[in-house]
Design a protein around this nucleic acid. Structure first.
Ligand SMILES: [Mn+2]
Ligand SMILES: [Mn+2]
Ligand SMILES: [Mn+2]
Ligand SMILES: [Mn+2]
Lengths: 219, 219
DNA sequence: ATTCAAATTTTGATTAGTCAAAGTATATGT
DNA sequence: ACATATACTTTGACTAATCAAAATTTGAAT
């Protein structure tokens, strides 16, 4: 069994490769994602390659092996089921659950996880709108686009929030930028680096590119 | 914040000092309880003393400081609330929860624990009958005696099961040796090293000293 | 008082994970 | 083709936790 450090590396590599839609993940992304120095990442990666979790292509990056991908999927499943539990059952706010799940994911066994999944009624997405991998390691891939790509006049549905920062999540909630809600794009001037949007009959408001790239939508 | 290793040492020292009713715990007990070599225990203990968790009396033993006792109580609280959750909410068997809680106790935050306590309705004992310390660090101390000390003819109520071994817990359940149940001692011959007892109108059965010392009763 | 066994401590070594800083490779621009 | 900035790797050092084996202390028994 991998240490919780290895578990974090695996999950992070999987998330980056899902986000970027490329199976090879660079050392820089890994070091950044895990908040370690590049040298630390290189060392860890070499050990993980020796243990068969990943293929290591020096100076190119890293790819999950089948075994690595399977395990990483199970970590993602744990993380997202735990987040769902923390919100649905215990009533925590969606801005505080990420850090909690980041620890609990290493301590919960498959046995307990299965009971939890059953208790929660086999949810398919977590509170941020992210798909929860199945026990078999499958993940549903929505073809969402970032909100920043939407043109004026479009009406779209929010799929998920990428950013896990508490501050951004609290802001998003206050503006009703929540998975499931419908958004109308009132204007989008490329040069202004901002879009103006409206939810229901609420007051319209604007979002810069940085923020609007953190929100995935479809339709 | 202490590492999870230190958390385990603190909790173990507290449990032993509650069980033996003596505030000083020997090195041997610590090493044994944590399944490490005596040398390892000595090294850890010296570091923990330097950090103010315990007072270390070389070749005598160790006593929790106020800070150490407070923290150890919070660990015991976490452990027992988690065990309760695993049985009450998720429906695991009482023979499998100890190992699970042993990991989860290090990953759950005070914030989540408080929500969990509320969700469970502030239980006062865990599934093995052990008292759950309050948030303030108080613990209810039953004046239970071990079942082996009971004389023939006595009728007592089971308070708790000390042993956390799966095999023993499954056996105990199968014999209805469960906290709350009433037991009648049919005979107790000291020399035979066994007592014969009966629960309700079930078939009587016998228990040796080893087993009957694992069960605490009162009344 | 002497001896001995048990408990405890000390010593030297190992592993996982980390950083800082120095060294190396590579893509890009001229 | 050359220079250089950027990304990456290597090296040397450190900490926490552990073990095996040797050394020490202590309480009891003779
Ligand atoms: Mn994590
Ligand atoms: Mn999430
Ligand atoms: Mn533990
Ligand atoms: Mn218990």
């Amino acid at each position: 069994m991998p240490s919780s450090t290895v578990e974090n590396y695996l999950k992070n590599i999987l998330i980056v490769s899902l986000e970027t839609k490329s199976s090879v993940v660079s050392m820089g992304k890994i070091a950044q994602g895990l908040s370690v120095t590049p040298g630390t990442a290189t060392t860890m990666i070499k050990n993980m390659a020796a243990d068969g979790w990943i293929s290591y292509f020096p100076r190119k990056g890293v790819r999950l092996t089948r075994k690595g991908r399977k395990f990483a999927m199970s970590m993602l499943r744990r993380h997202r089921l735990l987040e769902t539990f923390l919100v649905e059952t215990l009533g925590l706010d969606w801005s505080e659950i990420h850090v909690e799940a980041e620890e609990l994911e290493h301590a919960i066994s498959e046995k307990v996880l299965e009971k939890l999944d059953e208790f929660l009624g086999r949810p398919r997405t977590d509170p941020h709108g992210h798909p929860i991998p199945t026990k078999g390691g499958h993940i549903y891939r929505a073809n969402s686009k970032t909100l920043f790509l939407c043109k004026a006049g479009m009406k779209v549905r929010i799929d998920s929030i990428i950013d896990q920062e508490s501050d951004f999540l609290r802001f998003a909630r206050s503006k009703k930028l929540i998975p499931g809600n419908e958004v109308t794009i009132l204007s989008h001037e490329k040069e202004a680096d901002a879009i103006i949007l409206q939810i229901g009959s609420d007051n319209p408001f604007s979002l810069g590119s940085r923020s609007s790239e953190k929100i995935l939508v479809s339709l």
